[in-house]
Design a protein around this nucleic acid. Structure first.
Lengths: 229, 229
DNA sequence: CTAGAATAGCGAACACTGATCGCAATTATG
DNA sequence: CATAATTGCGATCAGTGTTCGCTATTCTAG
């Protein structure tokens, strides 16, 4: 009977005795990330990852209890791409915006992150680092701890949302174009039918190009409202 | 060669000639929703839904091109649970909060919504209705259309986030409890190690119970920041 | 140094999944 | 009525996550 470790972050990476493992968690995650970046998250199967590692698919289960855990490793890995040395520590808003800017870049580099469950609990070590630095940026604000945690949650949710719409519009593949045209046709039909006047009005003004500046603009307003001042 | 309808919302529900279909889209969606509510989204398979409808799984593909489309039908179906008659139309913030409150209720009734991709484009008719009413609530605000659309996006993202954390903490099953304990142990370990002082500080204050009031509080601040005043 | 125990790698298989094909039954249209 | 379009569906396919049992390796205890 084994001790059941629910989370991969609490389970030791390797056993104390016995043969040494041939791979590391980071190495496995890196392979998964590379695959997802190039062919999509759907192509990240136990077999494909194992083959890229030069082994059998059953061996992967020595490192990971399920495919979901593998994806969790991948998510935490890309969370490690953020550089905290750019944070000046003098202006909380500037630091949070710097974090948001980098976070957006991570999403654009790894669009499959959007297909990943936005977990708030059971964060990996690198996600915890991110949280720590986000809280650090707000250290001079006189707010309750849970209010700050709340703010970080909203912050990351907004970044995720904006990156998502940006990625949707940026898709240049034939499938993406088809989808965009279909959506446009759908909305045009609805607006033309006249049953949705407010939507028609909102769509009348040309939409702003989504970019890093939009992210900063929205984040600034949201954070000011949320944190006061 | 058929005309390829990318979106299910642009495809006619039934052909003009030939035998009449035995089911409706809404009926199929209802079966899926019932299944997902009781056994989870993972239990919504083509076979299980078809069996609940009293037919073969291949027949489902006469209504739906893929499982994802089936899920899209389900999502749009629960979007129909929102009652817009409660909107007074006199105070934009009050109306938006009323929408948020109902939206939260929908999430709590159908937790599997969180496992669903948060699509911004290609909305179903009921999602479009929601959007229309949200925009209607803001009709007296003098803002660009795309700014209002932006606000609705952030709005729904925040509701989704808060409902998600609420559902995570509310889970009472043995598996959920295990997960919660594991997460708590993980954080305790990190805090004890001393490498995350800001996180430790934030966790020192007891977290506020997530509920409908929290949603309104956060939404109010976010919307005030986003829409000005 | 040796015996035993714990661990890693993995071929083969299992249960299931989404999806397709071709045919028979049904129904509106010309 | 004949034709063409459409539906229902049994059978089947390729592919998935995961498990089992075995062998090979490597650390620890004596």
């Amino acid at each position: 009977m084994e001790t059941e470790h629910t989370s991969i972050w609490l389970r030791p990476a390797r056993g104390a005795r016995g043969r040494a493992p041939e791979h590391t968690r980071d190495g496995i995650a890196a392979v998964g990330v590379r695959l997802a970046d190039s062919v999509g998250l759907g192509a990240v199967t136990m077999r494909s990852v194992a083959e890229a590692l030069g082994g059998g698919s059953a061996s992967l289960y020595r490192y990971v209890q399920s495919r979901d855990e593998l994806v969790a490793l991948m998510v935490d890995q890309v969370n490690g791409e953020i550089d905290y040395s750019v944070l000046a520590g003098t202006d909380w808003l500037a630091d949070l915006l710097a974090l948001g800017r980098q976070s957006r870049a991570v999403y654009l580099r790894h669009p499959w992150l959007l297909a990943t469950p936005a977990a708030t609990g059971n964060l990996g070590p690198r996600a915890v680092d991110y949280l720590e630095h986000a809280l650090g940026a707000m250290q001079d604000l006189e707010l309750d701890g849970h209010r700050k945690l709340e703010a970080v949650g909203v912050f990351t949710a907004v970044v995720r949302l904006l990156a998502g719409t940006e990625i949707e519009q940026r898709g240049t593949g034939p499938v993406d174009r088809r989808r965009q045209l279909a959506a446009a046709a759908h909305l045009a039909g609805l607006v033309g039918a006249g049953a949705h006047p407010h939507l028609a009005a909102a769509l009348a003004t040309p939409p702003a190009e989504p970019d890093a500046d939009q992210v900063e603009r929205v984040l600034t307003r949201v954070l000011r409202g949320l944190l006061g001042t």
